[in-house]
Amino acid sequence: MNIFRLLGDLSHLASILILLQKIQSTRSCRGISFKTQALYATVFITRYLDLFYDWVSLYNFVMKIFFIASSCYVLYLMKYKYRPTHDPSIDTFRVEYLLGPCAVLALLFHYRFTLPELLWSFSIFLESVAILPQLFMLQRTGEAETITTHYLAALGAYRALYIPNWIYRWFTEDMVDPIAVTAGIVQTALYLDFFYVYFTKVLQGQKFELPA
């Protein structure tokens, strides 16, 4: 564990707490893509299967349980409790365009040809693009509530912070994971546009609005 990974994980944790806070305080999941949330639940469930047979640490265990549980809880909130506040007509990204290629990539790039390893690879690739339905929705509506942008910023910061973590591990542990690193760089790059608007507008106290 190093400071970058710890801050990345805390940022990830914070993003989920901000999302829950947004839903509970506005009693609405307006502006949140159900598809992105469903993809994240898929990511966590397929990646953390090792919970059942591989012990890393208490920290690792608790975080994995939290990510699986919270992502399922968000799906429950969106699908049942606050269902009327979710508008599927603007959440139109075709997720099959993400799931298919990620499955193919996992078949091509993995560390071992076993089901858990294939699912692990799949989850890494899927995570890197899981935000696209959400960003697509943002693009369509052209604006977002401030709390939603804080959620996205914390989520983007999480994978961005993993990049210095991998550089650090390269030097201190001689560790490199080409699959995670490549996908992580792609994942972070997808946020660049969003980050630009977040830093130049939201953090200056303005509303998140995309130019028409």
């Binding site: 640490s57 690792n60 560390y111 699959i179």
Partner: peptide
């Protein structure tokens, strides 16, 4: 065989 590199990450 390749070590399970980033499998200790989240």
């Amino acid at each position: 065989e390749k070590p399970r590199s980033a499998h200790d990450e989240l």
